[in-house]
């Protein structure tokens, strides 16, 4: 029985501000899961803290709303204990690039098979609009008392440097592309990172839907808005790593960094990088623990019918035994 979109909705009242970019992400996630026919119990959506962090409550799958910045270690722990789970991690730019940056970087080098979706709105939404680590130097969004005093972190180049094997940029109001990116991210073997340009109409009055859509710059000839965001796949860009050799990797890395840095009047969105030549963490574990993929930690039976432990430690005790 194919899943319907409604199967993925909950009855929880959604309290995001009207027009918030988060709705687009929520729709895209629900559509992806429905199209992939992933039954709710097979999926666990983990999230951090922030407006974006509330997302699991609106999705009818296992929903684990964690701590500020800690979404990745929770998600990784759950996935490694049971690799058969489909694990999605979601969180804000403050969550992932600020308080959780250490986890974000270290998750990249592990390459656990999860999909991490980061909401880039340039602000700390839920705490009323302070500058987030992705807000550019000198910008003054609505609730800042002065222009931003810090340089911005670029999520794409940081993901590249950290070792993520799937890197994409999506846009909240291009739900169709976003849905495809999320599906690909879920299917990707390894850690997928999707940074989403997510307008916050309440606090970020600069990077708005209108701004992304180019409403402020009309084509003098046609009078039509010239959108800043454009789909990279429509330009024939190939995100894939094929051989995985050093030259290819170097070249692609430069391309991805350059795409990542384009955040002005031309903002590419789409899949920038996909590399399946690198083993996942689960595969690396399986090399050490032969039973790992068949009986991962969560699936191991640890006791017999009346609670007797099944682990036989007698050889270890004998090693320490002095007789």
């Amino acid at each position: 029985m194919a899943l319907k979109l409604t199967d993925l909705k909950t009855s929880v009242h959604n309290d995001w501000c009207p027009g918030c970019g988060d709705f687009g992400v929520l729709n895209a996630i629900q559509m992806s899961l429905a199209e992939m026919d992933l039954e709710p119990h097979r999926v666990a959506v983990f999230s951090g803290i922030g407006c974006s962090g509330k997302i699991p409550h609106y999705i009818n799958t296992y929903g684990i709303h964690t701590l500020h910045g800690r979404v990745l270690p929770y998600a990784i722990g759950a996935k490694l204990a049971d690799p058969s789970l489909e694990v999605i991690a979601a969180g804000g730019d403050g969550d992932g690039m600020g308080i959780g940056a250490g986890h974000m970087v270290n998750a990249g080098r592990r390459n656990v098979d999860i999909c991490y979706i980061m909401f880039d709105n340039g602000v700390y939404g839920l705490t009323k609009g302070q500058a987030s680590p992705t807000l550019s130097l000198g910008l003054k969004t609505k609730s800042l008392s002065g222009p931003n005093i810090n340089e911005a972190i670029n999520p794409i180049t940081l993901a590249m440097a950290s070792g993520y094997t799937f890197i994409a940029r999506g846009y909240s109001y291009d739900v169709r592309q976003l849905k495809e990116l999320i599906k690909k991210g879920i299917n990707h073997r390894g850690s997928a990172f999707i940074s989403i340009l997510q307008p916050c109409p309440t606090y970020n009055d600069i990077n708005t839907m209108e701004w992304h859509g180019g409403q402020d710059r009309k084509d003098p000839a046609t009078g039509k808005a010239m959108p800043r965001v454009y789909r990279i796949e429509e330009k024939g860009y190939d995100p894939s790593i094929h051989s995985g050799d050093a030259d290819e990797l170097n070249k692609k890395m430069q391309e991805v960094n350059s795409l990542g840095n384009q955040l002005g009047d031309e903002i590419p969105i789409g899949l920038f990088y996909s590399n399946e030549t690198i083993p996942t963490y689960e595969e690396r574990v399986a090399e050490r623990l032969p039973n790992y993929l068949k009986t991962p930690p969560a699936k191991q039976q640890v006791s017999g019918p009346s609670g007797e432990p099944v682990a036989d430690i007698s050889a270890l005790l004998d090693n320490l035994c002095m007789t």
């Binding site: 964690t66 270690p73 998600a75 722990g77 759950a78 490694l80 204990a81 930690p297 699936k299």
Partner: peptide, 18 residues
Amino acid sequence: EDETAAITAAIGAALSGA
């Protein structure tokens, strides 16, 4: 990468059933 991750990863694993 740190103890915050250590405990939260252990919690994640516990949620899965280990």
